[in-house]
Design a protein around this nucleic acid. Structure first.
Length: 533
RNA sequence: GGUUCUGUAGCUCAACGGCAGAGCGCUCGUCUCAUAAGCGAGUAGUUGUGGGUUCAACUCCCACCGGAACUACCA
C-alpha cells in the first residue's frame, strides 16, 4: 500500500465522565480503547490530541456532595483525583483533561449559548409532565402505573408539574440531521447504532429543555441567571473547551482554530443520542462544523451477567490493574471483546487468554530466540536484511503486508482483528523455529542457516511488538529494548526518535549487527486466583 | 405493542449461495532453544426449530422459539 505518513491531525475524545461516583470499569474500557487509537495515530506521525475529562455539574453531583457533607466543588475534586489516578495506572496518554467546572469552560459555554440564542433557537417554554419527587424526574404518562403511581416508587403518586424552562429548537434540525446521516454513512458507527439513531430521528424530533430552575450547581443561563444550563448542553461543550491552548483566551474562535472538527467521539452506547443527535444539532445551530465520527461501543458483562451495584458484581478497575497490570487488562479488553458489541469479563478466560498470547506465544518466542542469539551469535543481530529473504519465506510472506492489514484494522477500531493478525505471525514463528530446529543446525555447524533463521524470527517479533504497542506499550517497550533499541513506547514524543510508520511497520526493518539485550521474560504468566468464581 | 439486531464446536468468534473454520479449553504424543513454554495429532457442530426459493443455503425468504437494543430530555 502507498505511504500514508501524512501529518493530518487527529483529535479523539472519551466521554467526559460524570463524577457522581468513582470511575467504573466501563469508563476504563472506553478510555483504554481511546488511548490505543491515539497511540496508533501518534505512531503514524499524526499530531494527535487525546481528550479525557469530567462532567461535574448537575443535581446529582449537588446531592452526592451533600450526602458526604462536602461542597460540590470539594466532592468533584476528590472524585477527579480518583479518575486521574486510574488513568495513570492504566497508562493512558491523554493530552487534555477537561473539567466542566473550569472557569474557561464557562466562557465557552456562554459564547456558544449566545450564538444559539442569536440564531433564535432558544425560547422560553413550559416543561409539563408527571414528576416523581422520589426519582426527581419527569415520567411519561404511559410509564406510570394506575392512578399515576411511579413504577419505581409504587407507593408514591407522581405530581403534575408545570415548570418554566428554556428549550432548544431541536425539531428545526430534523431534516438537516437526516441529510447528515445520509451524506455521511460513517458518521455514526457501528451500523447497528446508526440504525437506532435513524429509527429514533425518523419518529420526529421534539425540542428539549436546556435549563433547570431548581439546580444551583451549574452554569447560570446568560439570558436569565435564575436558570442554570442543563448538564448535557454544558458537558458536550467540554469537548470544545478542551481544545483551547493553555494560554489562549477562552473564545470559540481560539478553541476551534486548530483541532476542530473532532475526528472521533468514542462513547458507550448509553449516551449515543446526545452525541449523534443533540450535539450535531447544537453545532449546526451555532454554525460550527460537526465532528467526523461518533462510535458507540458495547457494554461489559461479568460472567455473562449485567454489571450492577444491586447485583454486587462490580468490577473495580483499580483493583484489576493492581492485580494484573495495565498491559494484560488492556490486551484482554481490546483483543478478546469485539469492539462495538457487548462483551464479557470472565477472570478464568482472562488468565487463559493473556497467558496463551502474551506469555506463551509472544513472550516465550522472544525469550527462546534471544537465548539462541546469545548462544549461537554472540548476542548481536545476524547480518541480514529483508532482501536476503525470498518473497515466499514463511515469515516474510506474512510480515510483508501485516502493517497495512493492522493499520486498516486500527482505523476500523477492530482491535480484535489487529491482534489476531499479529498473533498469526507470532504463532507462525513458533512453528518455524520447530521446523527449522536451529539448535540442531548449530550443532552441525550450519552457522549461516542458524543466523538467517534467528534474524527472521527476531525481526518478526519486533514487528509484532511495534504493531501491538498501542495496546501493550510496556511489553512492546521491553521487547524493543531487549532487541537493542532505546525506545520507550510510553513517550508521547517518541515519534522524533522513531522511524516512520511505513518503515517501522515493514518486515525487514531490524538493523543488522545491532547489539542485543539480556533475555528476560517480558510477561510473567498469571496464576488463577484460588477459589474465586 | 412497534422497529432493529442476534442465535455456528464446552468458551470467544470466522465463513454470508458452492465440501462448516480459527483461537482458547480438554486428551494423547513429541522436540529441547525457551516463561512446566513450543510443535504435532485428536476431540467436539443435523450452523435455535419448522417450512420455502435454488442444481446448491450457516448464507436468501416466511413462520415460530430464545436473547438483546432502541422507542426523548437520570451523564
Amino acid at each position: 500500500m502507498s505511504d500514508q505518513d501524512f501529518p493530518s491531525t487527529f483529535a479523539i475524545t472519551t466521554p467526559l465522565y460524570y463524577v457522581n461516583d468513582l470511575p467504573h470499569i466501563g469508563s476504563a474500557y472506553t478510555t483504554m480503547a481511546a488511548d490505543a487509537i491515539a497511540r496508533f495515530q501518534r505512531l503514524q506521525g499524526h499530531p494527535t490530541l487525546l481528550i479525557v475529562g469530567t462532567d461535574e455539574h448537575g443535581q446529582k453531583i449537588q446531592r452526592a456532595a451533600e450526602s458526604t457533607g462536602k461542597t460540590p466543588q470539594e466532592h468533584c475534586d476528590r472524585i477527579v483525583a480518583g479518575f486521574a489516578e486510574l488513568w495513570q495506572r492504566f497508562n493512558i496518554t491523554y493530552d487534555r483533561f477537561i473539567r466542566t467546572t473550569n472557569s474557561r469552560h464557562t466562557a465557552i459555554v456562554n459564547e456558544f449559548f449566545q450564538r444559539v440564542w442569536d440564531k433564535g433557537d432558544i425560547y422560553l417554554g413550559q416543561q409539563q409532565g408527571w414528576y416523581c419527587v422520589s426519582c426527581e424526574e419527569f415520567k411519561e404518562e404511559r410509564e406510570l402505573l394506575e392512578n399515576k403511581h411511579c413504577p419505581l416508587h409504587p407507593n408514591k403518586i407522581a405530581e403534575w408539574r408545570d415548570e418554566e424552562n428554556y428549550f432548544f429548537r431541536l425539531s428545526k434540525y430534523q431534516s438537516q440531521l437526516e441529510a447528515l446521516y445520509q451524506e455521511r454513512p460513517d458518521f455514526i458507527q457501528p451500523p447497528s447504532r446508526r440504525n437506532e439513531v435513524l429509527s429514533f430521528v425518523s419518529q420526529g424530533l421534539q425540542d428539549f429543555s436546556i435549563s433547570r430552575v431548581n439546580v444551583e450547581w451549574g452554569i447560570p443561563l446568560p439570558a436569565n441567571p435564575k436558570h442554570t444550563i442543563y448538564v448535557w448542553f454544558d458537558a458536550l461543550l467540554g469537548y470544545v473547551t478542551a481544545l483551547l491552548e493553555p494560554e489562549s483566551p477562552p473564545t470559540l474562535e481560539n478553541a476551534l482554530a486548530q483541532w476542530w472538527p473532532i475526528n472521533l467521539h468514542l462513547i458507550g452506547k448509553d449516551i449515543l443520542r446526545f452525541h449523534a443527535v443533540y450535539w450535531p444539532a447544537m453545532l449546526l445551530s451555532a454554525g460550527v462544523p460537526v465532528p467526523e465520527r461518533v462510535y458507540g461501543h458495547g457494554f461489559l458483562t461479568k460472567d455473562g451477567k449485567k454489571i450492577s451495584k444491586t447485583l454486587g458484581n462490580i468490577i473495580d478497575p483499580l483493583a484489576l490493574v493492581n492485580s494484573y497490570g495495565s498491559d494484560a487488562i488492556r490486551y484482554y479488553f481490546l483483543k478478546e471483546i469485539e469492539f462495538g458489541q457487548d462483551g464479557d469479563f470472565n477472570e478464568t478466560r482472562f488468565i487463559h487468554t493473556v497467558n496463551a498470547d502474551l506469555a506463551n506465544d509472544l513472550g516465550n518466542l522472544l525469550n527462546r530466540t534471544l537465548q539462541m542469539a546469545h548462544k549461537y551469535c554472540q548476542g548481536s543481530l545476524p547480518a541480514y536484511t529483508a532482501a536476503d529473504f525470498a518473497p515466499d519465506h514463511p515469515l516474510k510472506a506474512i510480515g510483508i503486508d501485516l502493517g497495512d492489514r493492522v493499520r486498516q484494522a486500527y482505523q476500523d477500531l477492530a482491535f480484535s482483528q489487529a491482534c489476531e493478525a499479529i498473533l498469526g505471525l507470532v504463532r507462525t514463528c513458533n512453528k518455524f523455529i520447530d521446523e527449522q530446529a536451529p539448535w540442531a543446525k548449530y550443532k552441525q555447524g550450519q552457522q549461516q542457516e542458524v543466523e538467517q533463521i534467528l534474524y527472521a524470527v527476531l525481526e518478526s517479533v519486533r514487528l509484532a511488538a511495534y504493531l501491538l504497542s498501542p495496546i501493550i506499550p510496556n511489553i512492546s517497550t521491553d521487547i524493543y529494548q531487549q532487541l537493542g533499541f532505546s525506545i520507550d513506547f510510553n513517550d508521547k514524543n517518541l515519534i522524533n526518535g522513531l522511524a516512520t510508520f511505513s518503515r517501522s511497520a515493514s518486515w525487514g526493518f531490524l538493523p543488522d549487527r545491532q547489539s542485543l539485550g539480556k533475555p528476560k521474560p517480558v510477561f510473567a504468566r498469571l496464576e488463577l486466583p484460588a477459589a474465586i468464581g
